[in-house]
Amino acid sequence: MLHLVNKSPFESMSFEDCLKYAAKGSSILLYEDGIYGAMPGSAIADRMASVTSDYKVYVLKEDMMLRGVDKIMDGITEVDYAGFVGLVEENKTASW
């Protein structure tokens, strides 16, 4: 399963809600405002580090560029829209 999270974890519960239901080992793509969850040094960085050990976490490059975010935490993989399509090829998709 691919879980799509498009809201900032500082504003919305959708990232945490997604984790309540997502099976360990599944994939999570952070896009739109969701990408802020991938920034190093934030208040949720420790939480995100533990999430990356249980899930495959991806972040959408185009939405990072748009927002001036150029650093992401270790354990998170950057993908572009072609990579997003690739993840959808491999997985059913849940939009949170």
Partner: peptide, 20 residues
């Protein structure tokens, strides 16, 4: 909201990869 832009970019990328 960015949803329209994301949907457009995604659709374009899926077509580029040969998807119907």
């Amino acid at each position: 909201h960015e949803a329209s832009d994301s949907a457009y970019q995604f659709t374009k990328a899926a077509i580029a990869k040969g998807h119907e």
